[in-house]
């Protein structure tokens, strides 16, 4: 049970950390200043949520573990984020598609986590949900803007949606860790989140004049530590400084 709670905490924390890191790549490269700032703000929110969860994970580990050690000294196979968040940013539309698919999931997930039996996760959820609600609204608006925009923007956002779809299945698969956490009243029943996600995604895609991709086959493994080739590069960039100078301070 202790082991599973730690893994569950890390899954949430790693989602936030890796997505925050990916969004941070846009800083200074956004199409216009306001949207550049918006993404940086969201990256910061994700990082803040990641910190709360890493602190909790470090406490669970005990000993000399700290939030920094959790973030900077774990390797690819010890990361438990879903694959969707580690994928490359691509163009603006692709980043928006990934953000929309994940934000919508995250919004319903944290809404359910508000009544978790674990006090700490519940506290994190109460804090995070306020921020995630703003993210979900913003990314959904971008899907509509791009989908119902020009022929070119429509074509490209549809392509991104089609490409990313196979990475969304993992958000809703439940393994033994999920099942145990649900039984303990701590975790979230993802089948209910899936219903809400389906409904919202369909609604936004329709407004955006986009087609919902078909559920053919889904990638999975991230939650269990089996990642795509992209995560190693994300970690290399994020971790190289603290690994070169482990005791560095400023």
């Amino acid at each position: 049970m202790k082991e599973q709670l730690l893994e569950y905490t890390l899954r949430l924390g790693d989602n936030a950390l890796i997505l925050g890191q990916r969004l941070g790549e846009w800083c200074g490269h956004g199409p216009i200043l306001e949207q550049d700032i918006a993404l940086s703000n969201m990256a910061l929110d994700q990082l803040g949520q990641a910190r709360m969860l890493m602190q909790y994970a470090a406490e669970q580990k005990g000993g000399d573990y700290t939030e920094d050690k959790m973030a900077f000294f774990r390797d690819v196979t010890e990361y438990h984020n879903c694959l969707l968040v580690e994928l490359e940013n691509g163009d603006w539309g692709r980043t928006m598609a990934r953000q929309f698919l994940f934000d919508t999931y995250n919004y319903y997930f944290y809404t359910a986590l508000l009544s978790s039996a674990d006090e700490r996760l519940k506290e994190v959820a109460h804090k995070a949900i306020k921020e995630v609600a703003y993210h979900a609204q913003w990314s959904a608006e971008w899907i509509i803007r791009l989908g119902d925009g020009t022929e070119e923007s429509h074509r490209r956002i549809q392509e991104s949606m089609d490409d990313l779809w196979e990475w969304t299945g993992e958000l809703f698969t439940m393994d033994d860790v999920d099942k145990l956490m649900i039984e303990a009243g701590i975790g979230v029943d993802l089948s209910r989140v899936k219903e809400q996600w389906d409904q919202k995604v369909d609604q936004i895609l329709e407004l955006a004049t986009l087609k919902r991709p078909s559920d053919d086959w889904f990638q999975s493994g991230g939650k269990q530590g089996e990642h795509s080739e992209y995560l190693g590069f994300v970690l290399a960039e994020m971790q190289h400084l603290p690994r070169m100078h482990p005791e560095a301070e400023w």
């Binding site: 949207q35 700032i37 918006a38 703000n41 969201m42 703003y134 913003w138």
Partner: peptide, 8 residues
């Protein structure tokens, strides 16, 4: 103009 400004 934008839901996200100069600070969070």
């Amino acid at each position: 103009v934008s839901q996200f400004g100069s600070t969070a």
